[in-house]
């Protein structure tokens, strides 16, 4: 009797051992895609690799063909400076890159997929600074940019509770830049960002740009002044 009992236990033990093996194998098999996704997400967080490309961009303004066959390429951490005389089409190219102006020919792509096809999705990647600041005189500085750290980056923390109508032109520009920083978007499109800024603010702006690029961000900017953007490509229009 005890002997028989022992063999029964042995058999059960063997069975459970094998079934456990099978269960483990199955579990590995079925969780593989999920684990792969987790691994990829971890990698993505480490290296944000984005790519903005434009091919053969042509844009009409009214009857005039302002841009003809422009090509550009900006990678993560990269910067592109647009240069050219007044009316050369720098602002037009920026607006076209933002998707605000339709293209006559060509293609703008984000990581290989067309940016024109899905405008809201493309807009969600962009922090925009036009030649107008978009500052509401009735709202206070902290109502434009809530984060005091981001205000401090551009030296505006002292004015947090001040209505924006009391700011000078340069301070308004800095507030608009602070909004660009606080938008947390990968692509910055800046139209003459340093207009009206004092020397100290231009230096702060350079720091902000360097931080953004170090975190994998991209900058496309038009300017007439010397900007401190190390390693930036220049596109002459």
């Amino acid at each position: 009797m005890p002997y028989q009992e022992k063999t029964w236990i042995k058999a059960a033990d063997k069975f459970f051992f094998f079934s456990r093996l099978v269960a483990c194998a199955l579990a590995c098999q079925y969780t593989a895609p999920v684990r792969r996704q987790f691994r990829m997400r971890r990698c993505k967080r480490r290296v944000v690799a984005n790519l903005l490309t434009g091919e053969d961009i042509s844009v009409f303004r009214g009857e005039r063909l302002v841009l003809r066959g422009v090509a550009l390429r900006v990678e993560s951490g990269g910067a592109l400076v647009l240069r050219g005389e007044n009316g050369a089409g720098k602002s037009t190219l920026l607006r076209a890159l933002a998707g605000l102006i339709p293209l006559a020919t060509g293609r703008i792509a984000w990581n290989g997929t067309s940016a024109q096809a899905d405008f809201p999705a493309h807009a969600a990647r962009i922090a925009w600074l036009g030649h107008l600041d978009g500052i509401k005189p009735g709202l206070s500085v902290s109502e434009h940019v809530a984060d005091p750290e981001r205000l401090a980056v551009l030296g505006l923390e002292r004015f947090a509770n001040l209505p924006a109508r009391f700011l000078s032109a340069g301070q308004k520009r800095r507030l608009a830049l602070a909004r660009v920083v606080s938008a947390n978007r990968p692509l910055w499109l800046l139209d003459e960002p340093t207009t009206g800024l004092d020397t100290a603010s231009v230096a702060r702006f350079a720091d902000v740009c360097a931080t953004h690029r170090a975190a994998g961000g991209m900058i496309v900017t038009s300017t007439h002044m010397a900007l401190d953007l190390p390693g930036a490509e220049v596109l002459a229009l």
Binding site: A98, L100, F119, A121, A124, W128, G130, L132, G134, K136
Partner: peptide, 15 residues
């Protein structure tokens, strides 16, 4: 439209 906020609204990611 005049102070440039409209561009920002359209680029806010909302349709």
């Amino acid at each position: 439209f005049e102070d440039g906020t409209l561009d920002l609204l359209l680029l806010s990611g909302l349709p």
